[in-house]
Computed example of a mutant assay.
Amino acid sequence: MNAGSMNRQAAVPAEGVSDSAARAAHDLRVVFSRLRRRIREVARDEDLTPSQVSALTLVGKHGAATASALSSAEGVRPQSMAATLAALERHGLIRRTPDPEDGRRQLVTLTDAGRARVDGDRELRGEWLTHAFQDRCSEEERQTVLDALAVLERLTRP
């Protein structure tokens, strides 16, 4: 499917916004959502929920954190994060240890199995995407993506 064949019904521009800006914003969200789902399918996440994968990835990315910090970062209720962390602990992917600065709190860290899982999943996802670009895109298309990424990078700057 190409960008020209996507559903445009949600790309109604606000006043003062060009049709192309509205369409680009809509289509980009749709494509990124599909790409994110596809990349998640590649990893071996069948035994974890999306919330568990997200929390595991967050701990892997940022290191030791409190459950409160994780729930805030994920935008979920502390009770939801507690259930997610309990499941990850049952899988042997995280451990909780007392915070050396405040013994009332616990820090969540990855176990060796959790680190291997995060690193392995990242590697699988990266390999899938690399091969998808190699097998499904021409050199010219890959260069177009690189050029578009430079534009998207500019959008993320303050």
Rank of each mutant, 00 (worst) to 15 (best):
Q134T: 13
L48H: 01
L48S: 01
A65M: 15
E139T: 14
E140F: 06
S138G: 13
R96W: 03
S54Y: 04
G126K: 09
G120T: 05
T109K: 07
A65P: 04
S138A: 11
S71D: 03
A22K: 04
T97R: 15
N2S: 13
E140Y: 04
H62G: 12
I39Q: 02
L110R: 01
V17I: 15
A10L: 15
A14I: 07
E127A: 14
V59F: 00
A87P: 00
L88D: 04
A64P: 03
G92V: 05
R125M: 15
H62E: 14
A11L: 02
R117F: 03
S5A: 15
S54E: 05
V31C: 03
R95E: 02
S20I: 10
N2H: 08
K61V: 06
G16F: 06
N7F: 10
A150H: 12
V145F: 09
D19R: 13
W128Q: 10
V30R: 02
M1R: 05
G120D: 01
D112Q: 14
R125E: 11
A67I: 08
P158M: 07
G126D: 08
G126V: 07
A82H: 03
E15W: 07
A116W: 07
V118L: 02
R77T: 14
V30L: 03
V76K: 00
V42G: 05
T66R: 00
R29W: 05
L35D: 07
I39K: 00
R37F: 11
